[in-house]
Design a protein around this nucleic acid. Sequence first.
DNA 1: ATCCAATAGATTGCATCCAAAGGTTTCCTT
DNA 2: AAGGAAACCTTTGGATGCAATCTATTGGAT
Lengths: 219, 219
Amino acid sequence: MKLKPVNIAQTASASSIVFDALRKAIIEGDLSDGEALRQDEIAKLFNTSRIPVREAISRLEEQGLVKTVRYKGAVVSALSDNDLAEIFDFRAVIEPEIMRRAVPNLTDEDVAAARKFCDLFAQSSDTTQWGGFNRAFHAALYGPSNLPFHLEVAENAMDRVDRFLRHRMLTDNRKATSDTEHHAILVACENRDAERAAKLTRNHILGTKVHLLRKVPQD
Amino acid sequence: MKLKPVNIAQTASASSIVFDALRKAIIEGDLSDGEALRQDEIAKLFNTSRIPVREAISRLEEQGLVKTVRYKGAVVSALSDNDLAEIFDFRAVIEPEIMRRAVPNLTDEDVAAARKFCDLFAQSSDTTQWGGFNRAFHAALYGPSNLPFHLEVAENAMDRVDRFLRHRMLTDNRKATSDTEHHAILVACENRDAERAAKLTRNHILGTKVHLLRKVPQD
DNA sequence: ATCCAATAGATTGCATCCAAAGGTTTCCTT
DNA sequence: AAGGAAACCTTTGGATGCAATCTATTGGAT
């Protein structure tokens, strides 16, 4: 007799569904900078009441993705060039450290998975797609670090800047550059050269930063 | 004619009052590891309904200070020795960086303020007090870095481990050691020696980590 | 006595309703 | 016509009430 292989995970709470959806929309740039989040509107969209929506918005605020003003509502957080630069500097400190500590734990399967995402990234042209593959590539390499707190913080940093990346990297050859850099990181991982992988990760992030900020000298 | 110099800031929302109070209680160890947070009970305590309490708890969860299970409720997050170690490793990476970038911006007033908190820390014996002075000392030196995102993340890391520090550093001479290390950092700052201040900050954090984990070899 | 099912109590998740604050339009005064 | 105040509308913050789920207790069968 076969049982349905199912559904231990019940249905998620309304508030977490809304949270995930809003987070995704912000990261992917479907909600743009400064756009207002109307509780009622969102509630109707998800066939729920405003209560779960409000909880989702509080959580987003705690993540720094939206900013709320009392009795006025929440808007998607705007980031100045300074803010962007700072977050990339942060990533340039923490992600190499994660990489360094992940390399000794990498299995051949981990590297293969990363290579898969790296290739998918290289082949994809759609913004939403390659944004996801980019994150999946890094996640595949960072995961084995077994540093959940580091990962949590790094994810949040990426969340905050992702939409800018996706938006501003469309029109030129930065994706090709990223692709080259990804492959270099992969090779370092295959050779289990932690220091080199860390160094390349740092350069990758700082390169992206320079590129991003050069694209909008004054906006 | 003199006006009351007051109160532009109106009264805070119920949910933020509850959030601040719960956060403080967790940081200071008034709520211990694994302790359940009953919505109704907290609501009565603050003369409010469960709605703001629920928002406060969602925010705490997003900060990693509590963990909730659906239909069961929220408990203060427990941390394994591994978790603790990881967070200290994280701090040992990020806080020296903050220090390094703060030093060039430090005014004499900043250093004086830090010295004040350092002295208060040295003189205080009450756990709650010196915990606060310790944070104030570091905040005084980190603030001028003008790195709000770095600070936000560093604060959260401290929030997560603070109650363990306060609890386990009572009974021995670690506070004296910390005091010495604080003064060394101060001297480096007065000499505007960023590299040295960073290095000392790193050693301070790693020293605390070793101390903390040695105290509970297997718990 | 032990195990399991069924019932009761407690607790959370969410919907609905009301109050408080902000924003906009209208209308009155000059 | 211009300025300001007042009424209206919109939107958020919070209270109450109900349904869903979990936990503890009771009761029955073996």
